[in-house]
Structure formats: C-alpha cells, structure tokens
Simulated scan of single mutants.
Amino acid sequence: MVASVAVIQGAGGSLGSHFCRHLLKQSSLSVVATSRDPSAARRAILEGLDGGDKLESRLTVLEVDATQEETIKKAAEAVKKEFGEKSLRLLINASGVLHADKSIASLDAAKMLHTFQLNTFAPLLAFKHFYPLLPQKNDIRSSDAAQSEQDPANGMVQPGLGVLASITAKIGSIGDNKKGGWNAYRASKAAANQTIMTLQRELSLRSTPSIALALHPGTVVGTNLSKPWTKPEDANKKPGHFDAETSTKMLLDVIAKSKQEDGGRFLNYEGIEIPW
C-alpha cells in the first residue's frame, strides 16, 4: 500500500491549519490534524475551503496536548488503526510558543520549561511515536509508490519518499545569532534543530527512504506567537514577512523539491540553507 497520510501536529494554530488546507486542496493524501481543541481546529481548516464534503472526508482531527506524551502516542495508534502500519508519508510539527525574555535576568523557570516542552520535546515525541508508521525500502519496492502518476501526494512529496519536518526558526541558528535575547526560545529552537540532524542520522543508518528537515517559515504575521511583534500590513510586503497562507505554501514547495540527499538540512521558506 502506498503511504498516503500527512500528519500536522499543532493544527489549531495559523501555520498548522494552513498546512492542512494546502494539503487538502493540492494532494489526495489523507490529512490528520492534531490539536488540543479538535472542534476549533476543524473549523479553522475547513472555513471557506472550496470542495466541501469531498475534502472534509479526507480530514481527521485528533485531540492532542503536545505537552502530554500519552496523547501523542494515542494519536499515532489511531492513525495506525485507521490507515495501516506503513501509512505515513509526511509529518510536520507546527506547534510552538514564545515567551520573550529580554535578558538572562528576566528568565522564568516555568516559562523556560513550557518553551522546551512545545518547541523541542513535543516534535521529538511526535517523531518517536509516528516513526514506526514510515514505510521501509521493502514496502516501497512492493508498492506502486515510485510511480508519480499513482502517488496521492500529487508532487507535494517526491515519489517513494517520506518527510519528517519541524518548523524551527532562523533565530535558533547559533551561527546567525547577532543580537542575543530571547534565550529560552533561541535555545529551544537550536535544540529542535539538533533533533532533526540526529533523526536524519538514524534514518540514514536504517536505510529508511525518508528524510528529516528543519524549516524556517519567515516572520509570519497574525499568529498567536508573532502578534506582539508584527504588523498585519507587513505581510508579503516587508522582506521575510508573510501571512500564514503564503508561508505554508512556500514551505510545502520546499518540501516538494526535497530529495533523499537533502535530509538533515536547515532551510528557509525559499529553500536557502541556514547556518546551524
């Protein structure tokens, strides 16, 4: 069976819901969205979306609190039961939080822990529990996955390839740190980047036909994370500033162009490499 499921972790936010919308419109993949509030996430994904019942029939929304491992585990088990043991084609971790500490003196232990729970631990635990659903080489050979005309991804993922991705941030780049500040956020995103590289090493060692990617979405205006720091009028006008629809489309284009040899890369919305 061809892997035909895309999982978007954190689908209740602006980025997550727009990833789901693009995938429903542009592919034939079954889209599994996870959120603490499934009803609100479903509304955000489907509101104003052309296609009606046909698109909605490909959407599954599961309740997940990304800070609670057991809920992530249950979601992976639900996907396995509904779609099969080797059904995962694409996983995007889209949840995140920013507690904007301005200096070392302003750090708060509880907020630091919450930052790492959502930005680092949650994506890593999603990889842990969904990883077993990735096809192996023998599964790909015994299917029609290599034939792009039969591929439910419709070009949004390379034929025969799986993708595990996390939305990190350029601010997590140690090599690009020019201003300092936002200690916990920077550190959590740098740690998330390290988990991508480590995951890629494991995928390569096990000869799994899947890759891991760290992706920078730009400054996305209008999200809960960015509202205090952005202006709506900057979207798609100020360099590197986008609305959620544009940012997610650009990132999906980056994923669509990524091949086996691109595994373990840290890329921005234009597919340009960012220093670790």
Rank of each mutant, 00 (worst) to 15 (best):
K102C: 02
G12L: 03
L203T: 08
E85C: 04
A145G: 00
L46P: 00
D139T: 09
N138L: 13
K74P: 04
Q194M: 15
G180W: 08
M197C: 04
A76F: 03
V79A: 02
K74L: 12
D253E: 15
S148I: 11
A146K: 10
A41N: 02
Q26G: 07
H99L: 03
F266I: 08
G222Q: 03
G160M: 05
S258C: 09
D262L: 03
A192S: 13
L46F: 04
S14R: 06
A76N: 08
K178I: 14
T223D: 01
L107V: 13
S27D: 03
P132C: 07
N93L: 02
G180A: 09
K178H: 12
G181F: 05
I272S: 12
V7E: 02
A105H: 12
K111E: 14
S142I: 01
A126T: 14
Q194P: 01
P38N: 09
K179E: 14
L133E: 09
S28T: 10
T67K: 10
A105G: 05
L59M: 06
Q147D: 15
T195D: 00
L55K: 10
S14L: 10
N183E: 07
T246W: 01
E270C: 05
G84M: 07
G263V: 01
P38C: 11
D253Q: 15
